[in-house]
Each structure stands twice: as C-alpha cells, then as structure tokens.
Simulated scan of single mutants.
Amino acid sequence: MKDLTKVAWGVLGGALLGFAASSAISRGKLRPCTTKLMSYGLDWKDKLIEGAETFKEDLEDMTAEAKEEAKKRAARRQQEARAQNVSSQDVILPEDTAQESK
C-alpha cells in the first residue's frame, strides 16, 4: 500500500510540475530559453542521424569489399585445384556449401 501511495504522489507531483512549467512557457518567460534548448536538441539529433547514415554506408562498403575478396579467394582455390589436377567436385567452395544448404 505504501508503494501505491508513493506512486500516486509521484504522478500528482509530476502533473503539478508539468502544469506549472507549461503555464510558465506559455506566458513567455521561459519560451526563448526553451526554444533555444530545443533547437540545440534538433541539431544534436541531426548530427546523430548523419553519423548513423555514415556508419551504415561504411558497413555496406566493407561488406561489398569482403564479398569481392571471398570471390577472389574462391577463384584462387579453384585455380590451384585445377593446377593440381584435382576435380572441382573434390574441392568444397563457399558457393557449393551455400547451394547444398538450400
């Protein structure tokens, strides 16, 4: 019961504080300050989004480079297998295992 009372007082206190803040902002005393604070928040949000997009593009580039490198390794292994007169069926390549799992 004591926890419920604490929660009720917390909700009531938060509502009163919110009402007091909204009335102070609407009267114009805090409006310039809150507007400036919100503009800084929006700038920060834009920088975060820009950073996330840059990070995503970097990951996409690294993934594409990794796929190319894997293809080169597979081609090199295949050439080595042919050079040793081993049939390509005896060499397990990444593409072969992917097709087998489907």
Results as ranks from 00 to 15, higher is better:
9 W>R: 15
11 V>M: 05
11 V>H: 06
12 L>D: 12
12 L>F: 08
13 G>D: 06
14 G>Q: 02
14 G>F: 03
15 A>D: 04
15 A>N: 05
16 L>E: 10
16 L>S: 11
16 L>I: 14
16 L>F: 08
18 G>V: 06
20 A>N: 10
20 A>F: 09
21 A>K: 07
21 A>P: 01
22 S>N: 09
23 S>T: 13
23 S>Y: 13
26 S>A: 08
26 S>K: 09
26 S>N: 12
28 G>V: 01
29 K>G: 01
30 L>H: 06
31 R>D: 00
31 R>V: 01
32 P>G: 02
32 P>Q: 04
34 T>E: 04
35 T>H: 03
37 L>N: 08
39 S>W: 09
39 S>M: 07
40 Y>F: 05
40 Y>I: 07
42 L>H: 11
43 D>A: 12
43 D>E: 01
44 W>P: 00
44 W>V: 07
46 D>V: 10
48 L>I: 11
48 L>P: 01
49 I>A: 12
49 I>F: 08
50 E>H: 11
50 E>A: 15
51 G>C: 08
51 G>D: 08
52 A>I: 03
53 E>N: 10
53 E>D: 09
54 T>L: 10
55 F>I: 10
56 K>H: 09
56 K>R: 13
56 K>G: 04
57 E>A: 14
62 M>S: 13
62 M>E: 12
64 A>R: 15
67 K>S: 03
69 E>A: 06
69 E>D: 09
71 K>S: 02
71 K>E: 04
71 K>F: 06
72 K>M: 00
73 R>F: 10
73 R>Y: 10
74 A>H: 05
75 A>N: 03
75 A>I: 11
76 R>M: 01
76 R>L: 01
77 R>G: 00
77 R>E: 02
77 R>M: 03
80 E>F: 09
81 A>E: 04
82 R>Y: 05
83 A>G: 13
83 A>E: 08
84 Q>H: 12
84 Q>P: 00
85 N>A: 03
86 V>E: 06
86 V>I: 15
88 S>P: 01
90 D>I: 09
90 D>E: 05
92 I>W: 09
93 L>D: 03
94 P>L: 01
94 P>H: 02
94 P>A: 01
96 D>A: 10
96 D>C: 00
96 D>F: 08
98 A>W: 14
98 A>S: 02
99 Q>K: 14
